[in-house]
Design a protein around this nucleic acid. Structure first.
Lengths: 201, 201
DNA sequence: TCATTTTCTTATCTTTTGTTAACGTTTTGA
DNA sequence: TCAAAACGTTAACAAAAGATAAGAAAATGA
């Protein structure tokens, strides 16, 4: 896919938050960088600052932690979504999570520096503040739901909810990643699936 | 406490996000409302839109859900913090959580309507976008940590973390609220505390 | 293509958590 | 002040989850 097409996809995505006119768009795009990650390459690693917010043109990414030598999946991002270790990106603190390409992935990136420049540029400042606000609010809402599900639901209930709402994750991710995402072990998820099947039949 | 003093506290709090000049401050304060909640009164309830973001001048609030007739605590807010059912406030969707005053609580509120008016007012728009962005980013970071703790830590590890970082919650909240906050039952927390004491001695 | 790796399930055993109930203590509110 | 409610601990049992290992099927990659 050529750059122009990718940029167009990004522009459509951005339109749900903020609409740029032609002059603004030209300046905005000058602050972007393009990158490709081969499968298994890392977008972010612990103990380094994550200095990019990526937009996934094609591909997918997995967020995970390593604890006691074990790999624990926390989240996924797919085409037409943003990806970042947000806290690290926003605060400049060292990140705590790995973000890895699950397949060859094309990204359009905004670096921290570019973001700061645009926020300081009178031509773009207002729209970038608004863009930042709406994106942060969007993810805040996602997290609010996710925390609520950990507090009020059992793992089995969380899995049943995912069956109804998480088509893409279920179809594209191996089950042991999904298990971690639900806060349980792969073995436990396998048992839950068995329970559900047994009850259903 | 008189209104002027409360407003001054709010202004100091806001300064970590955005600094208003005198003219802006006058207009901003015209969009605020003051309220007092008696202990046990509700700031938000499920199935209604939460149309305020409150700043707690004095007092404290508890977020909770009711599931199968049981009350499950999700979060707390104290003096000098904001309180809202954010997703509901931000999207206009019906809320899913109760937010209740734990003691008599004084609040300074920004209604959804007032926020929209300020975002549409050229005099304040830029700073309000920025304010909204920084607040949302702040809470996004909090949630990111909280979700990570649910995925990577056991309840016991979460409690030990709270012992190190959650002084205010530990001191001011009854233990069965803290248990829910950690994602477990009060009985289970009592056992965890026993285990820790046994090991420590 | 074919050996290797990944993935999922199942079994066993241990640990933890949930549930319910009882009991004493503390707090609350009329 | 005093009865009622709330709170924390403990016990007993059931249910669920974690850890580990084994085995089969599927996917991967050289």
């Amino acid at each position: 896919m050529e750059t122009a097409a990718a940029l167009n996809i990004y522009r459509n995505f951005l339109a749900q938050f903020v609409v740029f006119n032609e002059a603004e768009w030209i300046v905005f795009t000058q602050h972007l960088t393009f990158s490709t990650l081969k499968k298994k390459q890392f977008f972010a690693v612990p103990d380094k600052v994550c200095d990019q917010v990526g937009f996934i043109v094609t591909g997918s990414m997995r967020y995970f932690h390593i604890k006691d030598g074990q790999d624990i999946t926390g989240y996924f991002s797919f085409e037409n979504e943003l990806v970042s270790s947000y806290k690290s990106y926003l605060t400049g603190n060292l990140g705590i999570t790995y973000i890895q390409a699950l397949e060859d992935t094309k990204l359009i990136n905004i670096s921290r520096k570019a973001m700061e420049q645009m926020l300081a540029n009178p031509m773009l400042a207002y729209k970038m503040e608004r863009f930042g606000r709406l994106v942060a609010e969007h993810y805040l809402c996602c997290y609010e739901d996710r925390v609520a599900s950990f507090i009020t639901q059992t793992p089995e209930e969380r899995y049943l909810l995912l069956l109804n709402t998480g088509r893409e994750i279920l179809q594209r991710m191996p089950q042991h990643y999904i298990a971690n995402f639900l806060g349980i072990t792969p073995v436990s998820l396998s048992r839950i699936r068995r329970r559900i099947l047994t009850v259903a039949s």
